[in-house]
């Protein structure tokens, strides 16, 4: 994770400098301030810096215990990760995908299709969110 933090921090700083260089160069060359580029590059800096900031906060919250990838003496299988809960067979993402497809198809070719699609989006969203909260999986 330290590698990720370093890479994203460098990237963020680069965009920060690039934004400043762009602005100064632009003003010197044209005499006017073109804001779009300044803001766009600045937000690119935020894109990278934001993730770096979050990973750094996670890293520090671990109380000095480094992840296996940050420890030179760790073995590969030490990083065998506990990835969390992933459904092995859920159909809901597929249903949600088709439903969103219908809703947007409706916006493009005829609103009546969207009127069918949007309730399906709601059903798929609720079905997916509560898949592991009912029946056998209630906890």
């Amino acid at each position: 994770m330290k590698g990720n933090i370093a890479l994203l921090t460098v990237l963020g700083l680069f965009f920060l400098v690039a934004s400043a260089v762009y602005t100064v160069w632009n003003v010197l060359a044209t005499g006017t301030w073109e804001i779009v580029g300044t803001v766009g590059i600045l937000l690119s800096a935020i894109l990278a810096g934001f993730i770096a900031f979050f990973l750094n906060a996670v890293n520090r919250s671990q109380g000095g215990i480094l992840l296996p990838e940050d420890r030179p003496e760790a073995d590969i299988d030490d990083a065998d990760p506990e990835l969390g809960h992933f459904s092995p067979w859920s159909w809901w993402p597929l249903v949600l995908g088709f439903a969103i497809g219908l809703a947007f198809l409706g916006l493009a070719v005829g609103v009546w299709i969207a009127i069918i699609g949007i309730p399906l989006v709601v059903i798929a969203l609720v079905g997916w969110t509560y898949e592991y909260y009912r029946g056998n999986f209630g906890h």
């Binding site: 996670v58 003496e73 506990e82 969390g84």
Partner: peptide, 13 residues
């Protein structure tokens, strides 16, 4: 040898 550590929550990241 390697202390157990909770990996960053993948949902949060």
């Amino acid at each position: 040898l390697v202390p157990m550590v909770n990996r960053p929550n993948p949902v949060a990241v």
